[in-house]
Design a protein around this nucleic acid. Sequence first.
DNA 1: CCGGAAGCGTAGCCGGTGCTACGCTTGCAC
DNA 2: GTGCAAGCGTAGCACCGGCTACGCTTCCGG
Lengths: 137, 137
Amino acid sequence: MPVSKQPRNQHVRTRRDHATELAEDYVEAIDDIEREKGECRVTDLARQFGVTHVTVNRTVSRLQRDGLVETQPYAPVTLTRRGQRLADQSRKRHEVVLQFLLALGVSEETARVDAEGIEHHVSDETLRIMQQFTASQ
Amino acid sequence: MPVSKQPRNQHVRTRRDHATELAEDYVEAIDDIEREKGECRVTDLARQFGVTHVTVNRTVSRLQRDGLVETQPYAPVTLTRRGQRLADQSRKRHEVVLQFLLALGVSEETARVDAEGIEHHVSDETLRIMQQFTASQ
DNA sequence: CCGGAAGCGTAGCCGGTGCTACGCTTGCAC
DNA sequence: GTGCAAGCGTAGCACCGGCTACGCTTCCGG
């Protein structure tokens, strides 16, 4: 164990989270699109995220490098088993946060937007409590 | 008003949020440090965020460019009026989220970490509801 | 008053996440 | 079976937010 002079606070975690947010958003979106229309195309993702297909392309390459998706030139994007697992997790997390916000009394539209932003920053402990709260309403 | 074919969803907002998160974290930290020890040094921020002074330096330059902070070589970092206003807002927002999580029953340690991540993604509507919830406990 | 430690600045590297411009592939309509 | 629109890939640019390496400033103790 290194000494690690204590200050050096939780921002470190917050920053590390950022790295995985986009990956989670992507696998979640790919899963959604596959369910909705059978396959997921680069263009679908570009539309979904409001970016150009070029940006999607590069991101998908990174996800492929990291073992979360599979794709070949001019073919659809698919999830690997790891990617699918992450998508399932993310979807569940997302749903818990969304239902919690709705149970709290937030309007549907706002709840949808806020859930997007919040889901990546909620610890397991808080998630469990949100779930209990929703159930008890 | 442009047509804006509707899909193009809330992710756009989520992404735009990212751009301002770091700025909010910085002005909040600068405000904290000024209160605590009278002045805020680059090194203080580096310690606070767990990054090198070089990274802080560049970020502070950007904040100066954007009119949120003032600084001169080898001098402390101070907030402009705009920066102070943003810091006040952020501090309040942060406090509301933190108190809400505590009221929900989240442990103090987790609440502190989660509040850091969540505060930037909560709409005014949700914030108001969180405030009411905390007050009604 | 001067030497060294702490603080600070700059150059230059990397990877991520956006973009435009341009050209190749694919697949469907005719 | 050809031509065109939609989809896709690549090159190259910009900015952000990390880093190491290196050298200059400041300030305090002796």
